[in-house]
Nucleic acid binder design. Structure first.
Lengths: 206, 206
DNA sequence: GTTTAATTGAACGATTGCGTTCAGTAAGGC
DNA sequence: GCCTTACTGAACGCAATCGTTCAATTAAAC
């Protein structure tokens, strides 16, 4: 099917530059106030090129969110499914989860998505599937296997995942979302993480 | 100081109408895309009147947020501090908290504030103090008194408040924020609330 | 070198919005 | 009835944006 004729190929570097600059623009100003001309200027690209690649502002925004979600997917906290003691396993996960969620990039993304969902409901689904729901699945699987192994009390693993996620977050995410995101990174003490994990372990002790 | 001279008093009804319509406009479109002319039309008021009362768009937005926060304050979930059994007390609180947080109004407000904080950091503080932090304080006080009474294990009550808040919310608030807010109301089953409260009670059993 | 398509710069039309100005009217206090 | 102020409607200047059009240029594939 790949009929190749003589032509000048698309400059991928420009594509990437456009998306990167669109990201910055949309994050800084929000969808409505973002200016395509400013994006073009920042990416060293003609405005027409943007309209050739993406047809309009909505498409550009969608493409940017899609690309951003793909990146986010790769950076989700991981689970050390192994022979490590349960408490250590949970502590590691809690630490990396909180580091992830408190990174300014994620906080800003979360903020913008929350606002844009009203006008772009599909973006909300996209984001949920690329971020929160994926994380929920990771935690659910981990807890299910721990329950099978008898290291945690039998229960609905999905519900338990919500409990773990919630008890670790506490009020932190709310504070992050409405305060200066630069101050969020590294604001979670090890002591508070241990307290949360220990409470969870007690709640789900066999 | 109240030097009263002959004059025509401010029409309070118009003030209120302006704020109400500003609320709808800002919630529907976000700060940037909101139109003052549309607000004026909706409130049956001249645009000049809006500029006389509030000096500019920023001020109008701030006033609206302030008024909204005042309303929110009055609707926060309450604590039945009494002789009721602890489990019932917590169940009641959890129920009213989830009903409160899942109301479309609150979800929309939360979304907009999250986005606008970048441009209006002071609004973030205002909102935090009128909503989340107040709720945190309510829960903290309740748990502290329960710890004193010996019905819960001694611990940092503020931290425990975060645990209770988080374990009840689980993943729910994330789903709410990025899906259709109209479907959020009433989506929390009594069973899930009981599960969360019971896990909390186990984690903090004496 | 020819061909094909990507890219550019500049300009255009249409729309929208903010915030101001001004002359005139409405309405309550004195 | 007078006076002070709130309010109105319409218009204005100014700036910004989107999305389009067009002729001209560039660069890879053949």
């Amino acid at each position: 099917m790949a009929k190749r004729l003589a032509h000048r190929p698309v400059d991928q570097a420009k594509q990437d530059a456009i998306l990167a600059c669109a990201r910055a623009e949309f994050f800084d100003f929000g969808f409505e106030a973002a200016s395509i001309e400013r994006i073009a200027a920042a990416a060293n690209v003609s405005k027409v090129t943007i309209y050739n690649h993406f047809q309009n502002k909505d498409n550009l925004f969608s493409a940017m969110v899609g690309s951003e979600c793909r990146i986010m997917r790769g950076n989700l906290p991981e689970i050390s499914d192994g022979e490590t003691p349960l408490r250590v396993e949970l502590l590691n996960f809690a630490r990396s989860m909180m580091d992830f969620l408190s990174s300014p990039d994620i906080i800003r993304f979360d903020r913008r998505m929350a606002a844009e969902v009203e006008r772009h409901p599909a973006m909300g689904e996209l984001f949920l599937n690329a971020g929160p729901r994926l994380m929920q699945q990771i935690v659910t699987n981990m807890l299910a296997s721990e329950m099978d192994r008898g290291r945690l009390a039998k229960a609905d693993p999905k519900e338990a995942a919500g409990h773990l996620y919630g008890i670790i977050k506490g009020f932190a995410d709310v504070e992050w979302r409405f305060s200066d995101p630069e101050q969020a990174a590294g604001s979670v003490t090890q002591a508070s993480i241990e307290a949360a994990v220990d409470r969870f372990l007690r709640a789900y002790a066999v």
